[in-house]
Simulated assay, not measured.
Amino acid sequence: MTAPTVAPAEVSPQGAAMTGSPGQARAAWGMLAPNLLLIGVFLAGPLAWAFAMAFQDKRSFGKGTWSGLDNLSRLFGDDVFWRALLNTAIFTAATVPVGVLLGLGLALLMNKALPGRGVFRTIVYLPIVVSSLVTSLVGLLLFDESVGIINGILRDLGLADVSWQSDGALAMTSVVVMTLWSRIGFSMVIYIAALQDVDPQVIEAAEVDGARAWQVTRRVVVPLLRPTTFFLVLVNLIWSFQVFDVVYVMTNGGPGYSTTMLVTYAYDEGFGPARNFGYGATVGVVLFVIIGALTLLQLRRNARAEA
């Protein structure tokens, strides 16, 4: 005897799409409204205004005059802009991989049962908690040529001062060091959280197969942390292209233009003596496009790696 077949119940697209009552939808929009308002006022609005100013000759808060592509044409022939772009690329290449690798190393170390582990975690994470301005002032206190702590120690040891602000390479080095100091804690905490999700049985199986500690870390743990690594690389990449505080406080873009970054250059053009809001906005728009392109590139690379 053949069992009767039951036809599947038909569900209308409208019924499948409706997951709540109109009252619930209104409540959801009501809770989203404040955030959407803030995004519109402080993000979408200023961004649209910056794009509009990039096509104007605007040197005050009053009405500007339409200049078409003049600002963009000047940008491509601006040696300072290209120097700032190169400095930003060098700074990014120096801070992103080193910061992520140091964060991973500290996370692997702090994830073990060490005495005083909580205290060390707090010390490493502390710079990310305080204001970036405070971190920059600490950097100035350490690396100032005249009254800095480092040069003071060198003098006490009978050694020559280091030209932290007079030498371009050393000035960039000081900025990179302080940036790494302020970011490593964030990478460490994110990696520690990710390590809690690593299945201990996978590690035990690798150890049973004869893998040593370094091999387990390299062949098992690090590949499992790939999504976390992608997130940290992307976040640090965006942070590096947006660096401002530490450069402005410690070197002010000098000596010359050795540490001038895209953000500091946009600020100097828009709010410096020239007050060229239109050209400053153009630099900012180009920076926005570069960050967007790099983000999309990283997303595509990550999608291909996971495919």
Score class of each variant (00 low, 15 high):
Asp161Trp: 01
Leu141Asp: 09
Val286Thr: 10
Thr2Trp: 12
Val41Leu: 14
Met110Ser: 01
Val100Lys: 02
Gln24Asp: 12
Gly185Ile: 07
Arg155Asp: 08
Val80Met: 11
Pro227Ser: 03
Asn111Gln: 05
Pro8Thr: 09
Leu180Asn: 07
Thr259Gln: 06
Pro97Trp: 11
Ala52Asp: 13
Phe244Ser: 00
Leu32Ile: 02
Gly40Cys: 13
Val175Tyr: 07
Arg183Thr: 12
Ala52Gly: 10
Ile153Lys: 05
Asn35Ala: 15
Ala93Cys: 10
Thr65Leu: 05
Phe288Leu: 14
Tyr267Met: 09
Pro46Cys: 04
Thr173Tyr: 12
Leu37Cys: 09
Ile150Met: 01
Trp49Glu: 08
Asp197Thr: 14
Arg121Thr: 12
Ile203Cys: 00
Leu224Asp: 00
Leu157Asp: 00
Gly278Asn: 04
Asp199Ser: 05
Val247Pro: 05
Phe231Asp: 05
Pro22His: 06
Ala27Val: 11
Ala206Asp: 00
Phe55Cys: 09
Gly284Gln: 02
Gly270Asp: 01
Gly139Arg: 03
Leu234Ala: 12
Pro97Glu: 08
Gly62Thr: 02
Val177Gly: 04
Val147Asp: 08
Leu106Cys: 10
Phe51Asn: 01
Val246Pro: 03
Asn35His: 11
Arg183Gln: 14
Leu180His: 01
Trp239Thr: 09
Ala89Val: 15
Thr65Val: 15
Thr135Ile: 14
Gly45Ala: 11
Gln215Ala: 08
Ala107Lys: 01
Leu108Cys: 05
Phe81Lys: 02
Glu145Phe: 05
Lys112Leu: 13
Val41Gly: 00
Ile149Arg: 01
Met261Phe: 09
Ala25Val: 15
Ala84Thr: 02
Val6His: 12
Ser174Asp: 13
Ile90Pro: 03
Ser182Phe: 01
Trp164Asn: 07
Phe277Trp: 09
Arg74Gly: 10
Leu170Glu: 04
Asp268Met: 07
Ala84Met: 08
Val96Cys: 03
Val6Met: 12
Pro255Ala: 04
Ala293Tyr: 08
Ile123Met: 15
Leu32Tyr: 00
Phe81Gln: 06
Thr259Tyr: 10
Thr5Val: 15
Glu204Gln: 06
Asn71Arg: 06
Ala94Gly: 01
Ala107Asp: 13
Phe230Trp: 13
Tyr267Ser: 07
Gly68Asn: 05
Pro227Phe: 04
Ser240Tyr: 05
Val138Gln: 06
Phe288Gln: 01
Thr95His: 06
Thr19Val: 14
Ser132Leu: 11
Val263Tyr: 03
Asp245Phe: 00
Pro200Phe: 04
Gly15Phe: 10
Gly253Pro: 08
Val129Phe: 03
Ala52Gln: 12
Ser131Asn: 06
Phe271Trp: 10
Arg226His: 11
Leu234Ser: 13
Gln165Val: 05
Trp164Cys: 10
Gly210Thr: 00
Leu108Met: 13
Val176Cys: 03
